[in-house]
Design a binder for these strands. Structure first.
Length: 578
RNA sequence: GCGCCCGUGGCUCAACGGAUAGAGCAACGGCCUUCUAAGCCGUGGGUUGCAGGUUCGAUUCCUGCCGGGCGCGCCA
């Protein structure tokens, strides 16, 4: 509806241009809004207000002229008016509203979809948790946010590519391998050994031990019996590290699978190194003269270790300051290895070279400090601004019955994503993660998430869907005659209101996709469920009069469809009974 | 010290630059011989952290403060 009204207003503007009231030059963008106030109509536009200056007219006068250009043959708008400082308000005819129910039922599962994206290729990189241990709840929030964002982009006509960046190179991976080896030694010797300084103490390391294949175990045992062979140690450590990373990745994949989250591609950082991706990226930067040798000041933060070990030296730096970053960023460590940032530059160049029109990264809020430098690198590499959008996802605080759940790795009560999914189920986890904007911290109450009450938004929305389904069951049980679903019989103001709200669903989907804010769908569904419960409570659906009954059933079916579509976008089930 | 995010009823949060700032929780008062009361209705509660600026119009954008969180590695 909104779109067709926009065309209508554009037509009026063209007419005024023809009459010389408005200039032919580019005009300021106008908006079509839905006023909060009922008396202000179904839609309003600020067109006359924003164009008053170029027309050299008072906003209200211009509004009158515009309305005079309203096509005479249209029937969707019942009446219109100039109001306030110069708004034009439109009142949609009830006939048009009733037709909307029909349109929703016809579109079915496709209602809310749009071709807006024109097949634009977007990559969404998300989760990308280091394969050094199980996923925690915060990773889960990023995973769900990314997955739903992908669903939204798909529904709005984008070509979406989902990618997981595996940090399978670097120190942390070595630490994992050594941790496994350490535990293996302990097991063979039957006693605890002093822990290395860099060490992962988690329980899952023992699970990895149990899974080590027999041939590798035999090699390890042979070596431990005769340990004085450095080359052998290096080779075995390499083998055990690769095995451990694969094991953890499989573990992560399983967790994501339980949330029905899947990727098109798992991109290995190690392969990026092996295939010369970093050399390639640095070469591109060098050609553009964006690398220079320089000194770096010792940073303010970073802890004691950094403060002690800092070595001021001349090293290759990326000119990040040329693109708005605070300092130039180092590309190589003292031992000659590339920095994580160097790999990230290469990875993002690789993304660009694969031909994506737009890149979206979903990061934990603790990575916020890296946005500028990665944006700077992409701009330096490609000469284009705004290719990358980084969505920061804030931390999750777990509570149980309002009390914080303490999480300490040492005490062994670390709550993993898997624990939470097993306790409350995938639907509740997915929905709950989207009950706040991603930039806001989220409190996740494990008790409330499974509570069957209206405090629990998951059940509240699912219940609305189930309630509608039960109407049809009720009809069968009572042997009530089937009647054609015909919205023309709808006349109550609450019914027209409900239709108006159903009509905003496509706009909600579009704006959620455009602003990269998947939580808007959750908010919308909560509103819709509330409106439906309200209607249901006050209005008898299964009226004796088949005409009235058919109208209300049509409306209910449309509400059910929109709830189902919204839940589908969120990856949450729409149960038929509860 | 610097950067990013946040600041809205007692609490948790909404509001693509629009008209009288909205929900839920909590509090109080109502609604079940009728399709799921796992629900609904009503009442009270606000100087949108503070001060400026841009605008016809600012919770929204800009600047400066104040308060909270996160980050500031040659870690990932």
């Amino acid at each position: 509806m909104k779109e067709s009204l926009k065309h209508c207003v554009n037509g009026m503007i063209d007419t005024l241009r023809g009459e010389g009231v408005l200039p032919t030059m580019a005009l300021p963008q106008f908006r079509i809004d839905r006023p909060k106030e009922h008396d202000h109509g179904d839609f309003s536009t600020n067109a006359a207000m924003v164009m008053a200056r170029v027309a050299r007219m008072k906003p209200r006068d211009l509004a009158e002229r515009m309305l005079a250009a309203m096509p005479t043959d249209q029937t969707d708008i019942l009446r219109w008016e100039v109001a306030g400082p110069g708004f034009i308000n439109f009142f949609v005819s009830p006939t048009r509203l009733r037709r909307q129910v029909h349109d929703i039922l016809t579109a079915g599962p496709k209602y809310g979809f749009s071709p807006l994206g024109h097949g634009k290729k977007i990559m969404v990189e998300f989760v990308s948790a280091n394969p050094t241990g199980p996923m925690h709840v915060g990773h889960g929030r990023g995973a769900v946010t990314g997955d739903v964002l992908c669903r939204l982009l798909h529904a709005t006509g984008h070509q979406v590519h989902r990618e997981y960046y595996i940090n399978d190179a670097g120190r942390q991976i070595d630490v994992l391998g050594r941790s496994v080896l350490h535990r293996y030694r302990e097991r063979i010797q039957g006693s605890e050994l002093p822990q290395p300084t860099d060490f992962y103490p988690g329980e899952y390391v023992f699970d990895i031990l149990d899974a080590i294949p027999t041939p590798l175990q035999q090699s390890l045992q042979e070596w431990l019996a005769n340990p004085d062979q450095p080359e052998q140690e290096t080779a075995l450590l390499g083998a055990i590290t690769r095995f451990a990373v694969d094991w953890v990745l499989e573990d992560i994949r399983k967790d994501l699978g339980k949330l029905d989250i899947h990727f098109d591609h798992w991109f290995s950082e190690r392969q990026l190194h092996e295939q010369g991706g970093i050399d390639h990226a640095l070469e591109v930067l060098r050609v553009k003269d964006l690398i220079h040798d320089g000194l770096l000041e010792k940073p303010k933060g970073g802890g004691e270790r950094l403060q002690d070990e800092w070595e001021t030296r001349t090293q290759p730096l990326f000119r990040a300051t040329a693109f708005g970053d605070d300092v130039d960023r180092p590309l190589q460590k003292p031992d000659g290895q590339f920095t994580y940032f160097a790999a990230d530059i290469a990875y993002h160049l690789n993304k660009y070279e694969r031909g994506f029109d737009s890149l979206v990264n979903i990061w934990g809020a603790d990575h916020g400090g890296y946005i500028k430098r990665v944006e700077a690198a992409l701009e330096g590499l490609t000469g284009k601004k705004g290719l990358l959008h980084v969505l920061l996802v804030q931390m999750v605080n777990l509570t149980r019955n309002g009390q914080p759940v303490r999480m300490s790795k040492r005490a062994g009560n670390f709550v993993t994503l898997r624990d939470v999914v097993e306790q409350v189920g995938a639907d509740a986890v997915r929905f709950w993660f989207l009950t706040r904007a991603s930039a806001s911290q989220l409190e996740f109450d494990l008790d409330l998430a499974v509570a069957r009450s209206n405090d629990n938004p998951v059940f509240y929305v699912q219940y609305a869907h189930a309630r509608i389904c039960s109407i049809w069951r009720q009809m069968q049980e009572k042997g009530i005659e089937e009647c054609p679903l015909d919205a023309n019989a709808l006349s109550l103001e609450v019914e027209l209101d409900l239709i108006r709200f159903l009509d905003t669903f496509p706009e909600t989907v579009e704006s959620a996709a455009a602003h990269l804010e998947p939580h808007r769908i959750a908010f919308y569904l909560q509103d819709l469920a509330a409106k439906f419960h309200n209607y249901y409570n006050a209005t008898r659906i299964l009226e004796d009069d088949p005409k009235v009954r058919g109208g209300r059933l049509a409306l209910c079916q449309a509400v059910r469809q929109v709830i189902a579509n919204g839940l589908q976008l969120m990856g949450v089930n729409a149960p038929e009974r509860m």
